[in-house]
Design a protein around this nucleic acid. Structure first.
Length: 772
RNA sequence: GGAUCUAUAGCUCAGUUGGUCAGAGCGUUCGGUUUACAUCCGAAAGGUCGUAGGUUCGAACCCUACUAGAUCCACCA
């Protein structure tokens, strides 16, 4: 054994050994139930589905935290449970398309320069390049994942199941097409769910405008042309008399009613609120309640459209220039009364940070209320336990109870297209964007396009289509079920990424959506999975949706426990971000200090779900620990060699020593017994921080500093029995530490090959201390 | 507007159901190199556990208020 443990020399080889041995692939033991019935120790399966990382992302500290899952997995492998850790990669729709578009921008192109099929292929190739990188980096961390069961979210089998789910939801009346106000990013060109909108405090200007008999205040003067009413609070004495009378939109002199609405804040602005249902969420609701007309004046690129209500000077302008132009016109005509600065919350795109526009678009929605109801009940009943319970159960319930219908349409190409088909002959008002054979971008409804273009040309160059709310559709491709025509196009909206990943535990294990009994053996054996370990910030995005889908499709929860871990922050407690320059790259740290050091640094002394402060200092300290362990083993190995002990049978058998132990022996063995019990129960109850700290203390300050030091004298005096104890403790320590520091422990184990009881066994497959 | 979390040694944090719990790592200071490890060993300094009350025989741990910081949800123009 070398003087110092050199992780670089061993890690790759050890991982290869594990992987090639098949130890990561569980053997399904269907005898479990019968064995148990006979009173035998039939083992329960233990399974974790990896929270699928964006396959296009290189590894960051968040991924390194999969260490927590690896600890549980290796622990259960050593308990000899059939253990499955199923890895995967996510196509990450919007994220990946956004990154790809940045690449396009560098070569002076945009997504609008390509038809969707070409664009999709380009992104596919782009994403494909990085997929292996991500996988290989996870191997560097030592994760005991079953790579034979790896799944990618866009692989045909997965997508097919997702389509089946969509159809089932549709059959059950839980998916519908609706024209509603959605969160739209004009830069990304897609709608988002409510969860994806980030509200940012910004300074803005509040403009006071003259609406004839009443005055209003607004931050969005460019939307006045779409006003359909002015609302006042019924309790507002100033305006009581005006309810039912008419206000006048400035510049265009259109009269609109003054209505009563108790949601209006008397104290904000003038206390009168202009109502613009097509461009504001609150106004939309007021409009619906009062049956008001909905006038939309922006298109999806954020331009003001040609509309009889919009002054010509403003038409065609983007929103911000339109605002300036409107102000200018208002000033000229003396209708701008005053302006003041205010600070308000603005909804922004979580991806590109631009302002989100509420827009009226026909989209696909999932009715979530009935799904959420079951998901709430399941947690209340304890079918799924959330850990730490106190804090996160409340969060979960709050969100589930206030859930809104879920917009699953995304106007991007990078994802599976929603499996709905429109017959253009039956719906000639479908609006289409496409690139013709000459490479020109063409836009218009099918009725007019069909005068000049063949269907095949449109289909080939298709970019996107926009079907009206009341379009007729079918859930199958092929000929139109009504007119038998073949001019049919599939919906160009793609699924929200979370619609796919929300079914991940089901689809990857091989559920059969239409007939559960026909699901794969994997599904029958491993579902529901044991633990879902994740960061709290995707509790809603992902965990909540997996719960809903799992219960809806199978009647069973997708996992028994949700274990919430914390965010990795820098040593000043700040979130890591590229812009702050405080990102610690996990792979760099693995190169420098070894995977074990990084893993240990991520878990030692960390309380459940509290932030994890990581620093190079801490990782270095853990590297020192792995070296300490190495040298403990090295000392024992050298001592055995010096005593002429070459194999296990050369040692005095442990059992025969038990009646003749010294005080030191008894002390260390008692501590070891306690440590075994503490580690076993600690890992089972997610106390990884406490357990790892205890292990560290034991190895360094009890075993090495005290027992080994005292053993030196005994060795010098020729006492060989002490070697038996030394080896015994070391073996147990290696086993206890293996889930935390798999490489160095396995490496030592292999070094001691000849001196162990079972020379051919891998540490990973050895039986957990205390187990038979 | 609603809700949650955090506040313990210079720094980052542990402290499991209230009774050897006042701790660890890093850092600092002092002393150590013949054979497991200088990625080491020995020793030391350093905290009235945010503040003020309360419950209790006893509180870092429970309750109340306050202060400071962080976060989530909802979004009112």
């Amino acid at each position: 054994m070398d003087k110092v443990y050199d992780h670089k020399k061993y890690e790759d080889g050890i991982y290869k050994m594990w992987e090639e041995s098949g130890a990561f692939t569980p053997i399904i033991d269907n005898r479990e139930k019968t064995l148990r019935a006979r009173g035998s120790t039939g083992r329960r399966p233990f399974s974790i589905i990896l929270p699928l990382p964006n396959a296009n992302d290189p590894m960051h500290m968040g991924h390194a935290l999969f260490t927590i899952e690896d600890i549980m997995i290796r622990f259960h492998m050593m308990l000899q449970d059939p253990t499955l850790w199923l890895p995967g990669g996510d196509h990450a729709g919007i994220e990946t398309q956004f990154v790809f578009e940045k690449h396009l921008a560098k070569i002076g192109k945009s997504r609008f320069d390509y038809d969707r099929e070409t664009l999709f292929k380009m992104i596919w190739e782009f994403a494909e390049k990085n997929k292996d990188l991500n996988k290989n980096q996870m191997k560097r961390l030592g994760f005991a994942m079953d790579w034979t069961r790896y799944h990618y979210s866009l692989e045909p089998k997965i997508v097919a199941k997702v389509f089946e789910t969509f159809n089932k939801l549709h059959d059950d009346g839980l998916v519908y097409r609706g024209k509603r106000l959605v969160n739209f990013c004009t830069k990304c060109g897609t709608a988002f769910s409510d969860l994806e909108v980030e509200y940012v405090e910004e300074k803005g200007v509040l403009y006071y405008l003259d609406y004839g008999i009443i005055k209003i205040a607004t931050t969005r003067p460019e939307t006045i042309f779409a006003d359909v009413a002015v609302a006042v609070n019924p309790k507002d004495k100033r305006y009581k008399k005006l309810i039912g009378k008419k206000a006048t939109i400035p510049l265009i002199d259109i009269e609109i009613p003054i209505i009563s609405e108790k949601g209006v804040d008397k104290d904000f602005g003038t206390g009168a609120l202009k109502i613009t249902p097509a461009h504001d969420a609150f106004d939309w609701e007021v409009g619906q309640k009062n049956n008001l007309e909905v006038i939309s004046i922006f298109d999806t690129r954020g331009n003001l459209i040609k509309h009889e209500r919009v002054p010509e000077d403003v038409q065609g302008l983007k929103i911000l220039p339109a605002r300036e132009k409107t102000i200018e016109l208002l000033k000229k005509s003396g209708l701008l009364l005053k302006q003041e600065e205010i600070t308000h919350n603005v909804g922004t795109c979580y991806r590109c940070n631009r302002v989100i526009e509420p827009m009226l678009l026909p989209q696909w929605f999932v009715s979530t209320k009935p799904l959420a109801k079951k998901a709430i009940e399941a947690v209340k009943k304890g079918d799924t336990k959330i850990f730490p319970k106190k804090r996160f159960e409340k969060l979960y319930f709050d969100w589930m109870e206030n859930i809104h219908d879920w917009n699953i349409s995304r106007q991007i190409v990078w994802g599976p297209r929603i499996p709905v088909w429109y017959c253009l002959d039956c719906n000639s008002n479908v609006v289409i964007n496409f690139i013709n054979v000459k490479g020109e971008k063409i836009f218009g409804d099918y009725e007019s396009l069909s005068q000049n273009y063949r269907f095949s040309e449109i289909e080939k160059g298709l970019q996107s289509l926009s079907a009206p709310e009341d379009v007729s559709y079918q859930l199958t491709s092929g000929a139109c079920t009504k007119c038998k025509g073949k001019n049919i196009l599939q919906e160009t909206d793609t699924f929200d990424t979370w619609f796919l990943s929300g079914q991940w535990p089901l689809t990857t294990l091989g559920v059969n959506v239409n007939d559960l009994k026909k699901s794969t053996p994997d599904f029958k054996y491993f579902y529901p999975t044991s633990v879902m370990d994740t960061l709290w910030d995707i509790l809603f995005f992902w965990v909540g949706r997996m719960m809903m889908f799992g219960l809806y499709l199978t009647g069973k929860v997708p996992f028994e426990v949700v274990h919430i871990h914390a965010r990795v922050v820098d040593k000043f407690g700040k979130k890591m971000s590229k812009s702050k320059g405080n990102v610690v790259n996990p792979i760099e740290m693995v190169d420098k200090y070894g995977a074990d050091a990084l893993r240990m640094a991520l878990v030692i002394g960390v309380a459940p779900a509290s932030d994890i402060a990581i620093s190079e200092d801490k990782i270095r300290a853990m590297r020192n620990f792995s070296n300490k362990l190495w040298n403990v083993a090295r000392f024992i190995n050298i001592s055995m060699n010096e005593a002429g002990i070459k194999k296990f049978t050369d040692l005095t058998p442990y059992d025969t020593l038990l009646n003749d132990l010294s005080v030191d022996d008894k002390s260390i063995l008692t501590k070891l017994e306690k440590l075994i019990a503490f580690t076993t129960s600690g890992i089972s109850s997610y106390k990884f921080g406490l357990v790892s700290e205890r292990l560290y203390q034991f190895v360094w300050h009890e075993f090495a500093d005290v027992y080994i030091e005292s053993a030196k004298d005994r060795l010098r005096s020729g006492d060989k029995n002490v070697l038996t104890i030394l080896l015994h403790v070391l073996i147990k320590v290696l086993q206890l530490l293996h889930p935390f520091m798999p490489f160095v422990t396995e490496c030592i184990w292999q070094e001691l090959k000849d001196k162990r009881k079972y020379p051919d066994e891998m540490l990973l497959q050895s039986s957990w201390p205390g187990e038979k």
